[in-house]
């Protein structure tokens, strides 16, 4: 039996009728049309589908859409303010914290939770903090550097302007 669900994603309300077995990651990508959240392993290992649900990072491949009924969600598309990237996005850009980029949205969402709980992490704490996110290019070195750089910027409370070469993070 289909169920009506309603949830807020990045400040916009979405309402649909869904099968109870629909996974949240498929709801976000196919019903809400927000394809920044990726499906990687589909077994709750790789973290490519990491989003925030009511303030907690979750793997959207291991949550049913009906469980998110009434929730506030944040996905990678909700981080930038217009053309100004979030400090984590900017740091991944500056430090080249990606190779193929497939894991990047999940990495950034996981890093956001990590820095919210521990604003000044050590390198080891960063590596442990992103243990739920796999980079199959094995580009961890620059990912860790990017998170360190973002922690510094966010700690200073600095509002950095995105350079003119940075792409808009908003979908048209």
């Amino acid at each position: 039996m289909r169920q009506r669900v309603s949830m807020t994603i990045n400040g916009t309300n979405y309402e649909h009728e869904v099968e109870p077995r629909l996974l949240l990651v498929h709801y976000i990508r196919e019903q809400a049309g927000l394809t920044g959240t990726h499906v990687g392993c589909d077994t709750s290992n790789c973290g490519a589908c990491t989003i925030e649900m009511d303030g907690h990072s979750v793997k959207a491949c291991t949550v049913f859409a009906v469980q998110a009924n009434g929730s506030q969600l944040l996905t990678i598309e909700g981080l930038a303010q217009g053309t100004q990237l979030h400090p984590l996005q900017q740091a991944f850009w500056d430090e080249h914290g990606l190779q193929c980029g497939y894991c990047t949205p999940g990495m950034i969402m996981a890093a956001r939770q990590l820095l919210a709980r521990n604003p000044d992490p050590t390198e080891k704490e960063i590596r442990m903090g992103i243990e739920g996110n796999l980079c199959r290019c094995t580009g961890y070195h620059n990912i860790v550097k990017a998170i360190q750089a973002a922690a510094k910027v966010m700690g200073e409370g600095a509002e950095r302007k995105a350079p003119a070469t940075a792409p808009s993070a908003r979908r048209d």
Binding site: G47, T50, S57, K59, A110
Partner: peptide, 9 residues
């Protein structure tokens, strides 16, 4: 247990 995302749920 698991990782941060798993521990949140």
């Amino acid at each position: 247990i698991g990782d941060a995302q798993v521990r949140n749920r």
